[in-house]
Structures are given as structure tokens and as C-alpha cells.
Design a protein around this nucleic acid. Sequence first.
DNA 1: GGTCGATAATTGGCCGACCAAGGTAAAGTC
DNA 2: GACTTTACCTTGGTCGGCCAATTATCGACC
Lengths: 189, 189
Amino acid sequence: MTSDPPATSDTPACPDRLPAAARGGPLSHALSRVARLHRIAAGKLLRSTGLYPGQEFLMMHLWDADAVRQSELIKSMDLDPSTVTKMLQRLDHAGYVRRSADPQDRRAVLVAATADSCTLRSEVEGAWTELEEHTLAGLDDTERAELARLLAKVEANLCTEAANCPDRPSAHPASVHPAGRGGGGQGDQ
Amino acid sequence: MTSDPPATSDTPACPDRLPAAARGGPLSHALSRVARLHRIAAGKLLRSTGLYPGQEFLMMHLWDADAVRQSELIKSMDLDPSTVTKMLQRLDHAGYVRRSADPQDRRAVLVAATADSCTLRSEVEGAWTELEEHTLAGLDDTERAELARLLAKVEANLCTEAANCPDRPSAHPASVHPAGRGGGGQGDQ
DNA sequence: GGTCGATAATTGGCCGACCAAGGTAAAGTC
DNA sequence: GACTTTACCTTGGTCGGCCAATTATCGACC
């Protein structure tokens, strides 16, 4: 323990090279915080349905159609395949979803919502509209539209770099440091 | 896409009780998507530093002071204690952070950034400003301000319900179904 | 003094999400 | 036909993040 200075604060461990003004994007911060709060709120609302945030999204895709190819699901939700696989395993086990092999293409999997899951539908949709309402309370239509517009713009910006966006070319060579931390740092414990 | 149906699509598994217009908040959707992309972008930029998204946040808190009580950290980042504990274990093991018992209060833990971590500081801060720039590319000052304003408003909205917000009393009785899914669905697998 | 409630951390379990490999089946090529 | 891509999913690992339950310690109260 450092024998130490009783104290907290001050005595910064490292000198700051950048001017304080340049430090940290307040907007990025805000975005992260809002997103987190939003997720928590969603979780709370979804709780009574037995779904976890993220799953309702998947279910919504399923409720619209009868059976969906998993690859289709992955594409339309734009998630990692492994994420979807695991999610589906859980939902399957919970009885909300059924998977079956596609006779047309034997490596593909067809996914469908079960009848059981239907009882959730209205609840989930209600939760979402409530969430939306709660999120945007106090914003008039103009503000909502503006927020949507700005968010869309930001999304487009971020998409250009992200690997997988609808309609983004990006053979983008740069910026991808190939390696980085392979076996490095905090691997185990 | 969408055209295919040999068997897919149509025949919705459950009838939709809500009018399509009411369904799903487009803004909530957008927010989630943007947040996710933002996180991915952050991850990419942070990658070369060996940090994972979320950790840089913690480190920034540490770089500003010499030693911080863990509880202080938890409060100021507004995260779950267990989250911070695990994060710190990893960062400790990676050598970026050092924990020591607080002599004043033997149940408390003091956390400090190591000298090693200092080499990351400028890199991390650079990454953040780059991220900010990338995120907001194409938005003029007015738009940025507006976005910040709207985000703040949304944050305030979401805070009222979330348990833990700075300066929020919120003994908010309503809407919090106390229990929910205890033994429910997808527990095991 | 001793008891009881609040506080500080930790552990364990769970989920979403990622990446990196791997295995299998379908297209495309020769 | 056989061979080589490519697409589709799984598994295994890691992280951030949450909740629930536990263990120490501190404080306050009696």
C-alpha cells in the first residue's frame, strides 16, 4: 500500500499532454451514457416479459414472418453470427423459438417464433412504445425529427468505417491495425 | 432480398394486435444502432492501445487523480460495483492499475493508475478526439450543439426512471413491476 | 460494552456482443 | 468428374454490463 499520502485526488499520476479543451468528446460520452440508460430502461420494461434487451429485437423480426433463414436474420439485424446463434439457443430453450433445418439448403437453419411467443408480442410492443414515449418525453415533433435526422447522420458516419453496413463500399484499407493485443494483456485471471 | 420465398415470409406466426404505425419506436432503434456502431468504432480505435471500450473511461478517471477510492469511481462512472471490480481486476492484471487497501477505512480500496498506463494516455485521448471527429463529421456547430442538447434531454428523461442518476431523487413509485421473471425462461442450457 | 443497520467489495451467474477458428454443405471452376 | 472457393452455422474464448447474495468493516444507537 504505498505508505502514502492519505489523500485522494491531486498529484496526477501522469502529466496531461493535451490541452484540457481537446480532451474527450463530450458528445461521445453523452452518447454512451444515453445508450446505456436506454438499454437499462428497455431491460426494465422487458423484464416482465422474460426477455432480455436485444432479444425483443430478434423476436420482432420473427413475428413478421413465418420462418426466416438464420442468415437472413443475421443480415437484417446486422449482428455477429455467433451472437445470433447463442441468442437463438437461449430463446429456443426458453420455448420462444424453434429451429429446423432447411430442406432446400442443408447447411441453413430456419427459425420461427413459437405459438407461445405470441403471448409476448403485444406486451413487447407495448413496452417499446412506452420506452419510446419515455425516452422522448418533453420533445416536440420538431425536436424528435431533428434528433432522428442527426442520429441518422451520425450513423452514416460511423458506418463508413464499420465493416458491415448496408450500402457501404469501404474496401477501406487504412486504420485497421491488424494485430494489436493478440495474447497480450488481460487475458486471464 | 426479401423476394425469395420458397417458404419464408408471410403467414405471420401471430396476428399483430397493434396498428403498424404504433409499432416500435424508430428513434429507439436508431439510438441502439448508433450506440452499437459507436462502440465498435471506439473498440477499433482503442484496439492498438490494448484497452477495451469502457476501460478507457475508467482510466480517464484515474489519470486525473492520484488515488481514487473505488466507491468514488463507481459513483462517478455510475456503474454497477461488480462491473468495476471485474474491470479493475483485469486492468490490474494487465498492469495498468494498482489497488491497495485504504488505511483509513479497511473495507475500502484505493485505485491508482500505474506509470505504465501513462504511455496510453495520450493515445487514448487521441483516439477519443478522433472518434468524436469521426462521429460528428459533417455536422456543423449548430447541429452538434443541438444534438448535445437533445441527448441531454433524453438522458434526463431516462434518468428519472433509472435508479441511479446523479441528482435524481426519483422515488418514483410507478411502473416498476417489482418482480418479474424470477425463475423464468432461459436460465440454463 | 454490545447490537444493528448502512457501506465497501467480492464472487458467481447470466446475457449481449465481439473475434477467431473450425466443420459442413453448397456453388463455381477446370 | 474432382477441386477449390464461398456461404452457413457452431464452438470457445473474452469483455462490458447487470442482478443477487456474501463477507468485512464502519458507525450509530442503546
